[in-house]
């Protein structure tokens, strides 16, 4: 426990430092990539608990994100302005912002129970399709809500709150807030994975029947996994809404859910570091290919190359970048030729 508090404090300080460094020395365009990567990591690491640890297959992650985004945005708008009205952007208050994030997480998490429980009846592809369907229903219902702005969604979502000493930072505190939750989700996911609950989840993935016969309550743990993923997806949604200052239901189509799956599989399903690597690659790759596109003068070329790379990657390394292993120093050392570590004859 004391260690947990110390870690948390260190995390806060690190995020503050990161935000300061970026706003001081790095161009705003690149800071934008950093933020998008952070949001992607929160989504991917959360979903990894569902798809990677318990071995369920959810393609409805965008649905949880959507709920979190709209709940958080609406609450934040009401707290800050008292009504939906046009006008300049304002900063959200610290307390109300944290409360809104919590609210988004809880709303999405509650939905996670609602989806996770019936999903217990389904396996494999059928589960995948059902979650896809759930995600789409969520989005369509949001589109039909006139009180939430219908298809055009919500605008004028407040800026993320300032912290002491950040008043002069251009670009605001989004890096701090986003990476604070990156830190939280990664820390909690790693701790979950390395606990009796994490082992039980992996046991369910590896052989559900054997796990149940050993007394592992698979139904409950699968729902827990759903709630964990959904909670953080909800928070990611709320952060996204505050970051963009506007949300539309169409920001959360199944395409986004599939993107998160691609991150997981690219990085290596079941590995936290893999999920992070996948989030970075999938977010950055199209951007890195931009110069190529401009050089060739063909609009849309970067996405074509991105899709091609995805296919080639899967055909030649179907287990993902890291497989199920975690990236560690030992693994890195093993990759250096001539120093294959570990085994003595």
């Amino acid at each position: 426990m004391p260690r947990t508090l110390a870690l948390l404090l260190a995390g806060v300080v690190a995020c503050y430092g990161l935000n300061w460094f970026l706003s001081e020395f790095i161009e705003v365009v690149y800071v934008d990539y950093v933020n998008l990567i952070g949001l992607a990591i929160i989504l991917a690491v959360g979903l990894n608990v569902v798809n990677g640890l318990t071995g369920q297959f959810s393609i409805g992650h965008a649905g949880f994100m959507a709920v979190g985004a709209f709940v958080g945005a609406m609450a934040s708008i009401l707290f800050t302005y008292g009504e939906i009205a046009a006008g300049p952007l304002a900063f959200a208050g610290l307390g109300s912002f944290l409360f809104c994030l919590l609210l988004s997480g809880l709303a999405a998490g509650a939905l996670g129970v609602l989806v996770g429980a019936p999903a217990l009846r389904l396996r494999g592809d059928y589960l995948a399709i059902a979650t896809l369907g759930f995600g789409e229903i969520t989005r369509i219902l949001l589109t039909a809500q006139d009180s939430l702005g219908g298809p055009t969604g919500l605008k004028r979502i407040p800026k993320m709150p300032l912290l002491p000493g950040t008043e002069t930072w251009d670009g605001g505190t989004s890096v701090f807030w986003i990476y604070l939750f990156v830190f939280l989700v990664v820390g909690l996911a790693v701790r979950l994975q390395r606990s009796t609950f994490g082992r039980a989840m992996i046991a369910i993935r590896e052989n559900e029947l054997a796990a149940e016969t050993m007394g592992v309550p698979s139904a409950r743990l699968k729902v827990v996994a759903f709630v964990f993923g959904a909670f953080f997806a909800g928070i990611a949604g709320a952060l996204y809404a505050h970051y963009q200052h506007s949300v539309r239901p169409d920001d959360f189509t199944s395409v986004r859910s599939i993107e998160v799956i691609v991150m997981l599989v690219l990085g290596g399903l079941g590995s936290v570091t893999g999920a992070i690597a996948g989030a970075v690659v999938v977010t950055l790759l199209p951007q890195l290919l931009r110069p190529l596109e401009e050089a060739m003068g063909i609009d849309g070329l970067s996405m074509v190359v991105y899709a091609l790379l995805l296919i080639v990657m899967m055909v030649f390394r179907p287990q993902g970048i890291f497989g199920q292993r975690e990236l560690s120093l030992k693994l890195l050392r093993g990759l250096i030729p001539g120093r294959r570590g570990g085994k003595t004859p």
Binding site: I258, I261, L269, M303, A307, L310, I311, M314, V315, P318
Partner: peptide, 13 residues
Amino acid sequence: LAPLITAIGVSLL
């Protein structure tokens, strides 16, 4: 899983 992701890749392509 790998063929599924590949199928998504082909679709995007």
